Computed example of a mutant assay.
Amino acid sequence: MSEPNVLLDIKDRIATVTLNDPERRNPITGNDMIEALLEKFAKVQADPEVSVMILTGAGSAFCAGGDIKEMNDPDGVFRKEPLAAAQSYVDGVQKLPQALYNLDIPTIAAVNGAAVGAGCDLTMMCDMRIASEKAKFGEVFLNLGIIPGDAGSWFLLRRLGHQRAADLTFSGRMVAADEALEIGMVLEVVPHDTLLERARERAAVIAAKPPRAVRIAKRLMRNAERMDLPDFLNSAAAYQALMHQTEDHHEAVSAFIEKRKPHFTGR
Rank of each mutant, 00 (worst) to 15 (best):
E188G: 00
E3V: 10
K134M: 11
R260S: 10
L229C: 03
F78C: 02
M174E: 15
D47C: 03
A64D: 11
F62V: 03
L37Q: 00
G149K: 01
A224H: 12
S88L: 04
G152E: 06
A36T: 04
E35G: 02
L187D: 12
G66E: 09
A86R: 10
T169F: 09
H250Y: 04
L168C: 06
A203P: 06
Q245M: 06
D91L: 07
N143W: 04
S60K: 13
R198F: 06
T29A: 05
K11N: 15
G66F: 11
N31S: 12
L233D: 06
T16I: 09
L181N: 05
R212C: 01
G172A: 01
G184V: 12
V52H: 01
A166Q: 12
N102L: 11
L156R: 14
D32P: 05
R212V: 13
E179S: 04
V205H: 06
C63P: 02
T56I: 03
G172S: 01
G30Q: 02
S153L: 14
Q240V: 08
A166C: 08
G172R: 03
V175W: 05
G119D: 01
P230M: 02
D91V: 00
E23R: 11
D127F: 04
L156D: 06
P48Y: 07
L103A: 04
N102G: 08
D193H: 13
M53V: 10
T123A: 15
E139M: 10
Q163V: 12
A204N: 01
